[in-house]
Design a protein around this nucleic acid. Structure first.
Lengths: 197, 197, 197, 197
DNA sequence: CATGAATGAGAGTTCATTCAT
DNA sequence: AATGAATGAACTCTCATTCAT
């Protein structure tokens, strides 16, 4: 990558982050291109040198966030941990990514219907891949007798809901740290899966 | 209420439901007043005979939904059940209201930042009242030794997240019925609260 | 006039006065039919039993005001006073009508361009008649050597301007009464007309 | 000021003048943004690149006009003329500004109630400053024994009314020129102020 | 007589997007 | 690479007016 391209890529990333911030604060529609530009001390027109459209911007936010989540889960998948511990790691990693890349991930979680059909199907594919990995872990656990029999999809949705909702209420200045919350959620959500001995 | 007033109230409710449907399908911004009118075979202007503004419409959807949830939880609070069973009833009731009044409740859960400050504060007050009742039940359970010690707020957020997320994935034609899901969630989410004996 | 017609006429006058009040307070456009109706505890629809259109309402305000002014000046014309005193009476009468029928007259003086062409031409005819009478008095005075030679039209416009502007600043609670102002204006405005001896 | 900024300022002034023309011809409400745009061969939307709102446009017309009048009167105040001649100069200057910047000034004189409270208070402050200067001149004249004792405010209102009304009837093609009218008004309106010797 | 209800034409305004420079 | 300027489509909202009951 040439110097020029590098600089362009960097600027694009900045635009993405500024967009994500505003999208997550005010919603896709109420965040205007003008505001995004102002945030970066660009002018409205200049932005269009780097992006194709506002939709495109939204899509790339979604994509970036999903890639982060996928990267994280793939690492965990390789860890060789037993299913219950592995699932806990997944939950903790999910929450930690969610909070540390707050703006980006919140956009993904809160603006589905704003995405055009074509873009949306790409994102959904990634999300499905993500959930499939989780499903694999749970099924493993069941097969090994560590987890009891459960409707896997439903459990995943339950877990994802609990975790994703964190974006709505988490405040860094609150009484529990990100790590404490992540640990608490992991324990709370995995426990009912465990088979009785 | 006179015949006239009754009919007017009914029409207003219809408008509210049509609005909720479109808001939940396309989001607040992308649902236009014109579409809402078309849905009801009204004209754009006529809608404004019943409402003050689009914001107002959104607000009233929120309010209607919150009132339904509050009505439900208040009934359960009076039931005299032990905390664990009561909490399960709350979860089941929440999910059932959510699904049967899908559009309305989804609007409430998914469009916070679209609401003007003044309106929002009213809704937040209602939501706080709702969560306070749940907090009361959990604290009761802890006091009675039925539930273990937990950070109450965090647990509520966990439960609410899991439940509210249902709006994102539930399909009536899916393998589990609304009641089955509600029961499964209630059991799954209450179990980790139980004190070990 | 039958009882019914009488009542209708009375109500129409009330509507006219309410309209005049609102027109003068907020301007023709910003005063809505709804407000006029509310002022009279009618409903929007009912108003239309008595009037044809909002334009019509405006026109009739204009006409009523002009008729009052004409009635007044015609009485003075018959008085047989010498021109200078007669002109002073006209000025005083004009100002007193203006103030005591404030709303009505203000409408006439401040919303010419709101009137449709057809309506406007009728009002302008009346105004011309009014000014012609004043012109007659001044010309008389010149002929009799009481007034000096002046461009009559210009003087009339000067006098009318000074008087009509009163609607913009007069406050009944101010330091001078209506009569004092009227007398002061009459003296001030007639003096420069007097021929030197 | 750069070339670009200069052009932008010029365009803004054009918009102001076009707006003033239409406002004075048809009144604030009946003049639409679309018409103003059409007058300048712009599109409706483009206008908003230069202004914030229609109200803003009206306000700026008011302000521009008041600034012209103030500039004029301030120059005269410095002239060192005796009060009677100075007052005549003020009247002439007022009339000449009024006529040569017809549209702008007429807007100011005829659309008070169209201005929002906040805007209006700014304009009223300027108008008060203007009238205070005139008041100063008259009081000077009284103190020097050149003018007789009069209620100053009332006289100012009388003079302003006579002058401002000119906008309603002046036609450049009429028998008297702007200068002749201005001179006539100045003489006519100052004479009754003079102390008798 | 009175009115609740409905209508539709039109206004102001916003904003993503484009483009010449 | 950047930007000031312009555009037009779309949207919310208002209100005089009509009409069945």
């Amino acid at each position: 990558m040439s110097f020029r391209e590098e600089r362009a890529a960097e600027r694009k990333l900045n635009i993405l982050k500024a967009a994500a911030k505003l999208f997550s604060e005010k919603g896709y529609h109420d965040a205007t291109i003008e505001e995004i530009a102002r945030e970066l001390k660009y002018t409205k027109g200049s932005i269009y040198y780097y992006i194709n459209s506002k939709q495109d911007l939204l899509f790339q936010c979604h994509e970036l966030a999903m890639n982060m989540l996928l990267e994280n889960i793939n690492k965990i998948k390789e860890s060789g941990l037993p299913p219950d511990l592995m699932l806990k790691e997944v939950i903790k990693g999910h929450i930690e990514t969610l909070i540390s890349e707050f703006n980006l991930v919140i956009v993904t979680l809160g603006s589905e219907y704003e995405l055009d059909k074509n873009y949306l199907s790409i994102i959904i594919k990634k999300r499905d891949a993500y959930e499939d990995i989780i499903a694999g872990i749970i099924k493993d656990g069941i097969k090994q007798g560590i987890f009891r029999e459960v409707p896997v999809k439903v459990v995943i949705n339950l877990i994802m809901g609990a975790c994703n909702w964190i974006g709505r209420w988490f405040r860094p200045e609150g009484p529990m740290s990100m790590q404490e919350i992540a640990q608490f959620f992991a324990d709370y959500l995995v426990q009912p899966l465990m088979a009785r001995r």
